[in-house]
């Protein structure tokens, strides 16, 4: 049994929240170059050019890539041979979020009650997903999620006879409805299978996967490519001004499901989809 003090977790979460918001993911930054070359109009090129410049300014001046520094989504994978000492683990994570958003000059965007809407002023609480995994390490992923894109996400309970065509139609319809609102070019996270809630979690996890990656299953890898082609023929384009790049990538994650069901979730990620990962 390995002991890890909870204040080490707080320190890591603080660092990851700041890093994720200031340093654009390398795979996304690389994909901008390809998008710039693919685009044909001055407007589309100029918008991708702004995004390239924006990432550079954020990195150099240590300010957030986007002012919407998100609700802090934290994935905490806890090795089963780890013992957390010195206090409540969830409280330690929330303290890390609190410090990261304060010390990193990140925007506090969380309201305590969905109707009353009083800002909690420290961006807590985070949305935390714990999982217990083999081993004696703790892996934390900070995934601050902006809500321009989150608001355009959707879940639908399809039925088995809807098949893959039904899945593809729901994904492209969701992106079409998002249109110019969700800060295209997008990263589209898709979860297929499980239950209603688990499909949504899969979709969120799908956003973590790098743009250069592919689903390990050849059928789903091909579906990722087909959906990307379909989405990029919608001509929404960068910021909605038309063009070749409505999405940079479609990532699909799947799970077994019930004989009666075909759950599909689409988590829309913007071009500033953010993740930062650390291991203790």
């Amino acid at each position: 049994m390995r002991e890890i003090p909870s204040d080490k977790i707080t320190e890591l979460v603080e660092k990851l929240c700041i890093d994720a918001n200031i340093n654009l993911r390398g795979d996304i930054a690389r994909s901008f170059e390809g998008a710039y070359n693919r685009e044909k109009t001055d407007t589309a090129k100029s918008i991708i050019g702004q995004l390239i410049e924006n990432a550079k300014i954020a990195r150099e001046e240590k300010i957030p890539v986007c002012q919407d520094t998100g609700m802090a989504v934290i994935f905490a994978e806890i090795g089963q041979d780890v013992h957390i000492t010195g206090g409540d683990l969830a409280a330690a994570i929330n303290e890390g979020v609190r410090r990261g958003y304060r010390n990193g000059y990140l925007r506090k965007s969380v309201v305590a009650d969905p109707i009353e809407r009083i800002n909690t002023a420290d961006n807590t609480p985070a949305v935390i997903y714990f999982s217990i995994v083999p081993g004696n390490e703790v892996k934390i992923t900070a995934a601050p999620k902006g809500f321009g894109s989150e608001n355009k996400s959707a879940v639908k309970m399809l039925i088995p006879s809807d098949g893959i065509e039904g899945v593809k139609k729901f994904v492209t319809d969701t992106v079409r409805l998002a249109g110019s609102d969700a800060c295209p070019p997008l990263i589209v996270g898709v979860g297929v299978g499980g239950t209603m809630d688990y499909a949504a979690l899969l979709a969120k996890q799908a956003l973590k996967r790098e743009i250069e990656s592919r689903n390990e299953n050849p059928f789903w890898a091909e579906t990722e490519l087909e959906l990307l082609r379909d989405i990029n023929s919608l001509n929404i384009g960068p910021a909605g001004f038309g063009g070749e790049t409505t999405a940079l990538k479609v990532n699909i994650e799947t799970y077994p499901t019930h004989i009666a069901a075909l759950p599909v979730a689409v988590n829309i990620g913007c071009h500033a989809t953010r993740h930062s990962q650390g291991v203790l």
Partner: peptide, 19 residues
Amino acid sequence: AGPSPAPPGRVIGSIGPTT
């Protein structure tokens, strides 16, 4: 727009448009 907080020495933090 709702900006992120201005770090010391800056006029304003990051400030892009919202939906």
